[in-house]
Design a protein around this nucleic acid. Structure first.
Lengths: 339, 339
DNA sequence: ATGAAAGCGCTAACAG
DNA sequence: CTGTTAGCGCTTTCAT
């Protein structure tokens, strides 16, 4: 690999001059020298070693991103947005996954730091707060994704989950539903879960409907317990006429559960899901869902981070909240009378 | 950030010694010194700057991966496998996406090179061959993913597409189908597409069935043309009783197409898809598919790359071929008589 | 067994 | 306008 010295030699100039053109500091440079250098660079097909540049400049122009599960389409879409925005801005992206494991999350953060990434984007599990506090203290730039980390004041990109749930429930209520079940994972301090439940409750209250705890099903996260929860809901004597699920996996499980319970969707029971993907319209039946702007979340997170990295003046922590929107499909209808 | 000098100073030794323990060269070091240094490292919470290490050692322990579309679940799953295997081996992963654009692919490769990644994994579009030839000549390590690059001899991880298609078609034939349609994207020199078509033809021939070109539908890649192709197939006077689709997007479109044609699956027409994901069993109806070992492909690709990177002796190019397997679900049945 | 010194490829004062 | 020089943080001979 050619180095800057090789180029300098070939062009018959000093390497400082080469460095200058590399960095666009032509201001006081003669046209002739500039062209000579440009020619040499082109001829040798030279491209600077960013390791050396980074070591010197103390920034790498790479940002790290830690996701709980890359293969989850929601996160994959976010990653795509992040990656494309980063590339647009001349940044590289290093990925790693935490698998919802706080240990791994920690290790990954440390690994990325030792690789000198300029900043980190992370959908934190929430148990690593001391680390983030430390980051804030040391002014190490990071942005939180999707989940608020307690009361910590930090750059964050989230979507308005209260609103997403509220809209969905309101729609069901407008259709005539009065008893609406909800499936969710243990809230475990995770803001999206808390907020979706909150939105559910708010919508009911706003419409003067009671909140019936027996309609709120907390499902175990590591097996198809959503199927069973659905069956339980649907076998109640005063069963709900609609079910709202709060994440992509539960979407699938609730459909299975309804099938197993021998009920047709939406004839016998309406279903409203969360998250939208290309195959959702192809489900049986096509599912109404709360669609989150995943790609945009990735873009915004990177943009925010880079803005912070490159802005001279210190900006105070910023929370960007994006709006979800509901998409109505065939899985919801007016309720049947249940005798 | 603490540097190696800080540690040396604190431990009261030279930085060479610190470097030795960092790299595990204790062999000739006194226990006492070793412990002193270890203590200092721990106290200062020191972690070496890998930029500097890399610059010196001339390897970064990061590998680049270029995928056509990160948000495609197939590639996302591969990425996950790659990422996890890399992390296990102490490597980092830089991702970028080519969006099937040869220009972008080129730029990304060059970008990754200038960032000094130790090697690259790529599902090439196939038009960048001179670049790869150059890599081979310069001994720059890379492994090709999913797609063979012409006749180039290079490390590659693929799945046996001929076999995947053959198994699917054989299954349909065993069910009694004689006229089987196939939906695919323009082959465009892409080995998986070519091979799946080949497998289709082979299975037919092996069973003494004719190859009817009118049953082979090449679909445009950038719109829902699979829907229309399906409708066309199904409106033929001697329409096929089964349709085989050759990728994940066409899976969805063929189902739509059948619905629009007013036919029930599998009662009126059987469907066999390609690629398997968690939501496939939840489609209407649950789809039989050829499942590819995506996660394993990612793992194998980085394992192969790292093996090449770290092995002393030169190994000749290796092609790893994984086997797909068919998964039978409700979308296929015996054909009805068509009058 | 340990330290001194050179240098990886680049940038950025500082001179001139 | 251009070149010289001193590092960035680390590894690695080479001495001792």
């Amino acid at each position: 690999m050619a180095t800057i010295d090789d180029v300098a030699q070939r062009a018959g100039v000093s390497k400082s001059s080469v460095s200058r053109v590399l960095n666009g500091n032509f201001e006081y440079m003669s046209e002739e020298m500039k062209n000579k250098i440009l020619a040499a660079i082109a001829e040798m097909n030279y491209s600077p070693n960013s390791l050396a540049q980074s070591l010197k400049k103390k920034k790498t122009k790479v940002i790290g991103i830690i996701l709980s599960d890359i293969s989850n389409p929601f996160w994959a879409e976010i990653l795509k947005g992040a990656q494309e925005e980063a590339n647009r801005c001349g940044y590289g992206i290093m990925v790693s996954s935490s698998n919802e494991d706080p240990e791994l999350e920690r290790d990954n953060i440390l690994m990325l730091k030792s690789r000198q990434v300029d900043g980190v984007i992370i959908n934190t599990i929430g148990n690593t707060n001391e680390l983030f506090e430390e980051f804030i203290a040391k002014k190490y730039p990071f942005v939180l994704l999707d989940r608020l980390a307690g009361d910590m004041k930090a750059d964050t990109v989230v979507v308005n989950n209260v609103n997403g749930a509220k809209q969905a429930i309101q729609y069901l209520i407008d259709q005539g539903h009065r008893r609406i079940g909800i499936l969710l994972y243990p809230t475990n301090n995770k803001s999206p879960r808390i907020e979706r439940l909150e939105g559910y409750k708010q919508a009911l209250s706003m419409n003067g409907l009671p909140i019936d705890e027996s309609l709120i099903k907390i499902c175990d996260q590591n097996n198809g317990s959503g199927i069973q929860a659905t069956q339980e809901l649907l076998s109640m004597s005063d069963r709900p006429t609609a079910i709202f699920t709060t994440n992509a996996r539960l979407n699938l499980e609730v459909l299975s559960g309804a099938k197993k319970a021998g009920l047709r969707v939406p004839t016998d029971v309406s279903i409203f899901g969360y998250d939208d993907f290309p195959w959702i319209p192809l489900l049986d039946p096509p599912l109404s869902t709360v669609a989150q702007p995943a790609y945009e979340m990735g873009v915004k997170a990177v943009a925010l981070l880079i803005h912070r990295l490159e802005s001279k003046k210190k900006m105070k922590p910023q929370i960007i909240q994006l709006e979800p929107k509901i998409i109505i499909r065939a899985s919801c209808s007016s309720p049947v009378k249940i005798e």
